[in-house]
Amino acid sequence: MTHRARIVRRICLLALVALPTGAWGVLHQPALDEPPLDEIGLAAKGPVRFAPLDVYIDAGDDRLGAWQVELAPKPEFAGRVSIVGIAGGDMPFAEAPYYDERAIQDERVIIADFETDGLALHTGKSRVAQVQLRIESLDDPTFDITLHTAARHDGAAIDAAVEAILRDPARSTDDNESTDQTTTSENDG
């Protein structure tokens, strides 16, 4: 394991301990034809399929240097969504981030990464990770998502928002946001 990887893992755990977890203010945007949940129930447990969930952080005018995100399927999708891999996002967060070992057993993902090279960082919206999912449901799952940490490369906290978009692998393109499932949340800065 590289030195950087060790540091990332430690940051992930430290941030988890140090930061409040009250940012579960989740905005859920239903898909166009999504039926009411009470009609879905467990009966809608359908064919097995796989789909990626892209995780974006919008850092506004700041350059995003460090982040920690927690996400989990909403309770009505419990048992029907499995995490089957975690990929990196776009540069400078292309490395597959480490995940919290205990959370993953509950199908929760807590991931984090950082980049100290300020010149490599971006402002605005960046894809920081992609969670690989196995879905046993006719309906696209939705997620609770929390941005625990967003900071510049020097560690200063910044205001940012996190967003997760479920993509359709059949289209195999990154330009299909408009009809994919979106879940967003903001942090307190």
Binding site: F50, A51, P52, V84, G85, A87, E101, R102, I104, Q105, Q130, Q132, L133, R134, R167, P169, A170, S172
Partner: peptide, 20 residues
């Protein structure tokens, strides 16, 4: 599972779900 280790009763799985 707690330590995310391979064992006789656990296995590593990775899927690229982004593409078929």
């Amino acid at each position: 599972l707690r330590h995310q280790l391979l064992s006789p009763f656990t296995a590593f799985i990775a899927v690229d779900s982004s593409r078929i």
